[in-house]
Amino acid sequence: MLHYTFDEKLITITETKQSSDVTFQIEIHSEIMRSRLKQVRSFFEDNKDYTDVLFYSREDGTYEVIVRNDMITGFLIHAFRFQCLTSLRWA
């Protein structure tokens, strides 16, 4: 299982597990982080899998990201790659 940390000054992430996926509620506190998250979004929206990672942008500026169970590792790796996370390690 992957354990991750993030810079709370820039981003807040909370997660809720369902049977087949995990929902990440993401609050952004800086524009730099918003553009980084957009890079993560663009990466998953450009692939040919339409339900692996679903991004929902809300009117209040927050994001909901629904990640299929088999794609959680991939999602966290790319969130780390685009510097939305500060660390990522196997727990």
């Binding site: 663009s42 942008s57 809300r58 009117e59 209040d60 500026g61 909901e64």
Partner: peptide, 13 residues
């Protein structure tokens, strides 16, 4: 209600 909270303007890249 969650659908009503979506921000469609954010889809324009």
């Amino acid at each position: 209600a969650k659908i009503m909270q979506l921000n469609e303007r954010d889809e324009i890249t």
